[in-house]
Design a protein around this nucleic acid. Structure first.
Lengths: 176, 176, 176, 176
DNA sequence: AATGAATGAGCTTTCATTCAT
DNA sequence: AATGAATGAAAGCTCATTCAT
């Protein structure tokens, strides 16, 4: 891939994320291209249709989440710490878009695979935290992962959002 | 308002809510009218544009929420009980639509007023619960109301969702 | 169907045929609508996409051809006369469009059925003419029908075209 | 012209003819270039626009037809033989494309000149055949040439097509 | 000289909204 | 008052053509 093409691809993804955040998921392809400083044709060369642009945004977030979660699991002193770190990373990603943008179901198999791999990592953190007695045991790791995505996949969420504190407190198992 | 007009109006609102739930917020005016067994013209006689249909759906939910919250505050044995009851009512309303349907920001003053009145009632329940020592005090009533709307305004939420349990546990202040 | 809708439908078909003849099969939907004195939306209400407009034009011609061929077979004094009459009718229809317009294969089952029924009638005329000793017997009725469509389905063909004379003379079996 | 440039030019013309036959006249410049194993840029270096590519394909056919007709006229034992030979040559050329490809009227003067020169040769064969009593005299040579182009310029025509037999029989003047 | 990325006009199609019946 | 036909702006997408690499 030529260096200018790579640059344009990134410009497009950036502009799309910004516009989707700013104007909601109805932002038009024309707007996105224009806001990236490019013509529509260029947008369509990189992403053959609207769907595939959305998918790529989602895939990007999921890949970054996966990488982060992996690293965190390797280094965190406890399952709980890993879990908290993953949540914090999630709110920093435009993961929100994954859900918010996609009324269209985005069912690309690659995406499902990515989501599964990330979920597996989150489940791993949850399981460890449960074993270590830091996280309530009346929920399955999958249920916890689902909740996490609800909390975290919202446009406008910011690190330090009080909802996160409450959510973590609701999950935590504290020693009597 | 003549009784058949009233009936048509209700048919439309019902069909719209169903379609929005089933097909997402992109359901067209034509579809809605057709699924209510009416022509588009009739739909437009009742709601001068799409926006005002959305607003009316939202207003409907908010009115019902308000009525319920009011009743609950009057009868519940404690602030906490009132709060829990309100949450449970919320998930039973198509409140989810209020958010889901409206990427378009529904800024009708009447709606804001309704939302404010409902929020005030929720804040009242929160304040009482805080005073009675059942709900953590490091959050303002407004913050709690915001969280509640996040938890509750999601398409597909069902009574008994584990997220609600966790959320309530995170908010609850339990005696040592 | 309301009378104005019927009128508009006919306006559209007429305008489309004229434009396709005048400007070739690339005439745009916008042009067609405009030239019928209507908005694009109206065109699309009558024909849900470009394809179905083309199909309707083709079907119209085939239906008229069928009706004509039927009548002709019933009344013509001989198979040969019927055959000649059918050819003459063909050049008067915008049958040319059927072929010319359709790079798109137009594979609507109804169309195929119509074409088959017309072909059967042509084959009937051919067979009769062969039995009556007026048409050469070294060709199958289907082959003759194919040739006929080549001769006749050309934009710009006019009644009395010398090619038709030559074609008929080439087919005719004259008594020694 | 360098030998590789010549080669590329021929690759392009070949690919274009094949694609037009296979996929109809809507084949895109990109497809043509790709199917010739080249980039679009190279295509445009050889043919400044789509039109000129089409024109060159047509010119190529006409030049070959001219050469063949010339040779045939010089060697055929009779006008009729020359005429028949020319027809047979025509169906072997991608002459069909000349018409099929060009809904766009190819009005390059050079093309007209080529067509005229070829027509003149065909007219010569016709005139000779008429004088020799082999071809009906109620048609002008130009009319016959026109018919010939109708018969012959169709995608999919093959040597031995029965239409050619019929056409020749219709033109032939047989001794009583 | 060759490549293929970028461009944007233009095409098909949809849908909120208006208006004749 | 109800209907659904008509409208046209705007969206998604394609492709001939240009131009940077």
């Amino acid at each position: 891939m030529r260096s200018d093409a790579r640059r344009n691809r990134d410009l497009i993804l950036g502009a799309a994320v910004d516009l989707f955040i700013e104007r909601g998921p109805a932002a038009s392809m024309e707007e996105i291209a224009r806001s990236a400083g490019l013509g529509v044709g260029t947008l369509y060369r990189h992403f053959p249709d609207r769907q595939s642009l959305l998918e790529e945004i989602a895939a990007d977030s999921l890949r970054r989440l996966y990488d982060y979660a992996q690293a965190r699991l390797d280094t965190a002193p406890s399952g709980w710490d890993a879990f908290v770190g993953i949540i914090e990373q999630c709110v920093a990603l435009p993961l929100a878009l994954t859900k918010a943008v996609s009324e269209t179901p985005l069912d690309k198999p690659e995406l499902d695979a990515l989501a599964e791999r990330s979920d597996a990592l989150i489940a791993e953190a949850v399981t460890r935290a449960q074993k270590q007695g830091d996280l309530r045991r009346d929920l399955s790791p999958a249920q916890v992962a689902d909740m996490l995505s609800v909390i975290v996949c919202r446009p406008g969420i910011r690190p330090g959002d009080p909802l996160i504190t409450v959510f973590l407190d609701g999950l935590r198992l504290r020693p009597a």
